[in-house]
């Protein structure tokens, strides 16, 4: 403990391992970058739509598609170079949905490989399996 006369210096870092700090930084950046890319794509899609047509509405459906179908549709359009406002908006939504998924995947790999914490690697694997099944398979 520090004396009252000295400014307090946080010692959390000492009993928290460096590994935990690495993980916090990783999770923080994945979430931050995912949300920022998603927002940028949505804004770009709407701006383009407005400049091209003078209105903002989009009317298309993705009923009957799971995230895999939806994402693949966009990947094909990107490959074909078929860029249009609608594609940017769809990509924005896909990136948003993938953000927590990537966070869970990265956490699982981190627990398994870096932290070597089997317990938590299995917890995150369980979350990942259920989410992947629910989003991509059915």
């Amino acid at each position: 403990m520090s004396k009252a006369s000295e400014p307090f210096v946080s010692v959390c870092g000492a009993d928290e391992s460096a590994i935990q700090h690495m993980m916090e930084t990783m999770v923080g950046y994945i979430l931050q970058v995912g949300v920022m890319i998603s927002a940028a794509l949505l804004v770009a899609g709407y701006a383009w739509r407005f400049l091209a047509t003078g209105h903002l509405g989009f009317d298309y459906t993705i009923a009957g598609m799971n995230l895999y179908d939806f994402a693949m549709l966009e990947v094909r359009q990107v490959a074909e170079g078929a860029f249009r406002p609608r594609l940017l908006v769809s990509l924005g939504i896909v990136v948003l949905l993938l953000t927590p998924l990537v966070r869970v995947l990265a956490s699982m790999v981190f627990f398994a490989v870096v932290a070597r914490n089997l317990k938590y690697a299995l917890f995150t694997l369980f979350v990942l399996t259920v989410l992947v099944h629910s989003l991509l398979v059915r």
Binding site: D59, L67, L97, V130, L131
Partner: peptide, 21 residues
């Protein structure tokens, strides 16, 4: 909340209730 909301979203997506527009 992020993972919870994603799990809920997966059900609404499969049910065709998510309209990008």
């Amino acid at each position: 909340i992020g993972v919870t909301a994603l799990a809920g979203t997966s059900v609404y997506l499969a049910a065709g209730l998510i309209d990008p527009g």
